[in-house]
Amino acid sequence: MSVRSQSVVLAVLVLAAAIQTAGAMAPMEILQAVEDTLNAPADREMHLSMTLVDDQGDAKTRELSILQKGKDKRLIRFLSPADVRGVGFLVLEDDLMYIYMPAFSKVRRIASHVKNENFMGTDFTYDDMAQTDYVKNYTPGLKEETDGHYVLELVPNEESGIDYSRLVMWVDKATMLPDRVEFYDRPGLLLKIMTQTDVRRIDGYLTPHHIEMEDVQDKHKTIMDLENVVHDQSIPDKQFTQRYLKRF
């Protein structure tokens, strides 16, 4: 059985389990199911068109590609605008990140405690971008259950170092994917709202293709549209090295 079909089977099983036990799930189980759904593919490659809209309504668009393997291997490459074409990020673990700047032909390590800083002008923090560790970082509580949704309230664990006071997550019972997440800042005010829509089944995996993150305080918005999503190509580990980061 190839890695790819294994994953498909796994995903289907998870989904089936999720549907079967729906209605009687503990909050932690729901969150685990969400995380499993998100992390189901062994690897994923995609194109992303990202639009940043500021409080004046001015929009900037950039194209990027993302290569992802497992939970902690990720290569982000900017394709446009022209002056940043080729800028790449290699994210290996929490604190191990490399940036490649083609204008200087150089790779630099970014030893980072920037988890809570916004990533490259977007409304996503570095941590939001890499967020696949819900179970590890948050304690969930079931706030509400509707016909279609579980509404979870996630409080970050002490040691997670996460800067939000809490998250409120609407989990679609049918997909076990969050389609709306509210982020609250430390004083407890609503800071950001993320919505994920246009969920498509690609290679057997459910993937939202339209993601919006709106910073309601700064009135700034990031819209991401996914294209050409491909899963389970058995991307070799060497793709996630500094050498390949430079090759563009």
Binding site: F78, P81, D83, V84, V87, M101, A103, N118, M120
Partner: peptide, 18 residues
């Protein structure tokens, strides 16, 4: 200051949104 637009943009990118 770097002498190319790309040079500036690459560095700028790093602090964009800060």
């Amino acid at each position: 200051i770097p002498d190319t637009r790309e040079g500036v943009a690459n560095l700028w990118f790093f602090v964009e949104g800060n």
